[in-house]
């Protein structure tokens, strides 16, 4: 079975804390994900995402705070617009838009974190290896 590589960018204030909660609560989730903590989801530049795909990622996950909860007030709104536009653009560049996913996961949502990772891993597995 193909073992996908997934790069994830978590904002420090919500999703990263959610990932920690999943860990300290000893929840299990698929091990295909490599997490990178950034201060805010809006710190993730589309360049970073393309770089990840180019360097072997089969999927890229961005995790941020729920709308209204961004530590920097409006970072996540920018993120959502950028990712929505980037999804459309990568699809036209031959990279299935479902290889890129944006999720809002709060510090209290350890369970949801584990579920999102499992779901996304399955989805990327179905899409197969990304050959660039």
């Amino acid at each position: 079975m193909f073992d996908p590589k997934i790069i994830a960018f978590y904002c420090k204030w919500c999703t990263s804390a959610g990932a920690d909660l999943a860990g300290t609560s000893r929840m299990t989730y698929k091990p295909n994900i490599v997490g990178i903590r950034v201060m805010c989801s809006s710190r993730v530049d589309p360049e970073h995402i393309l770089d990840a795909f180019k360097n072997g990622a089969d999927g890229v996950l961005i995790g941020g705070c729920h709308p209204g909860d961004c530590h920097y007030e409006s970072g996540n709104y920018k993120t959502q617009k950028r990712i929505t536009l980037l999804k459309k653009m990568i699809n036209d560049l031959g990279i299935d838009k479902n290889r890129l996913r944006l999720e809002w996961i709060s510090a209290a949502e350890g369970k949801r974190f584990a579920k999102v990772v499992d779901e996304f891993t399955d989805e990327v597995q179905k899409l197969g290896k990304l050959k660039i």
Binding site: E47, R82, L86
Partner: peptide, 30 residues
């Protein structure tokens, strides 16, 4: 800048619909 397109996309997406962005639904953004 290493990727002109990604940088431009980022700049344009950030100023799209910035007024009232907190009230935009997923469909509005799409």
């Amino acid at each position: 800048v290493s990727d002109f397109g990604a940088k431009s996309l980022s700049a344009i997406a950030s100023i799209m619909g910035i007024e009232g962005e907190e009230n935009m639904t997923d469909e509005d953004i799409q």
